[in-house]
Amino acid sequence: MADAPVVAVRGEAYRETAPELARFTVTAVARDRDRETTLTRLAERAAAVRALLDAAEPAVERRETGQVHVRPVTKRSGDRVVAYQGSLSTTVTTTDFTALGDLMLRLADQDQVEVAGPVWSLRPDSPAYREVRQAAIADALVRAREYAEALGARVIALRELSDTGMSAGPPMMVKAAYARSGEPEPELELDPAPQPVHAAVEARFTISEPVLG
Rank of each mutant, 00 (worst) to 15 (best):
Q67T: 11
L151C: 01
S167K: 10
R71D: 11
T17G: 07
T74L: 15
V142T: 14
P72Y: 03
R33C: 04
T94E: 04
T93L: 05
A199E: 01
M172E: 13
H69K: 07
S208Y: 05
E149P: 03
T38Q: 00
R23C: 12
S77G: 12
R50N: 12
A55Y: 08
G213P: 12
D102H: 00
D32K: 05
F205H: 10
Y84K: 09
L100A: 04
V68A: 09
Q67N: 13
V142Q: 11
P124S: 02
D54L: 03
E131D: 14
A18T: 14
R33A: 10
T37C: 02
A150T: 14
A2W: 07
T91Y: 00
T38E: 00
T74F: 10
R133F: 15
D79F: 08
D96Q: 07
T93M: 05
T25Y: 01
L52S: 02
E160V: 05
R62V: 02
T98S: 13
V201G: 03
I137Y: 08
Y178R: 13
G101L: 01
V68M: 07
P124M: 04
G66P: 00
D3R: 08
A51Y: 02
E114Q: 08
D111C: 01
G78L: 01
R50Y: 07
A176L: 15
A144T: 07
P194T: 10
A108E: 03
V73P: 02
L100P: 06
A140H: 02
G11V: 06
T38C: 07
G213S: 12
R80L: 08
E160M: 08
A59C: 10
A168G: 06
E131S: 09
D191F: 13
A116N: 15
E57K: 10
S121Q: 14
A13K: 14
V82R: 12
P72H: 11
P210N: 06
F24S: 10
L52I: 01
Q67F: 08
E16M: 15
R130A: 12
V155S: 01
A177I: 14
V174N: 05
V70Y: 01
L21I: 15
P58R: 09
V92Q: 05
A168N: 01
A59D: 10
G165H: 07
V68K: 11
A157Q: 13
E209V: 11
R133C: 14
A55P: 09
F24K: 11
S162E: 09
T95M: 14
L21P: 09
V70M: 09
D111M: 01
R41T: 13
T27A: 12
V115H: 04
R143Q: 14
Q134M: 00
G152D: 05
V26N: 13
E36H: 04
L151P: 02
A168D: 11
A30N: 13
I156L: 11
L158V: 12
K75C: 13
E114S: 05
R80F: 09
S167Q: 13
G152Y: 00
R23K: 14
A136W: 06
T17F: 00
H198Q: 12
L158R: 12
A30G: 14
R10S: 03
K75G: 14
V155D: 00
R143N: 13
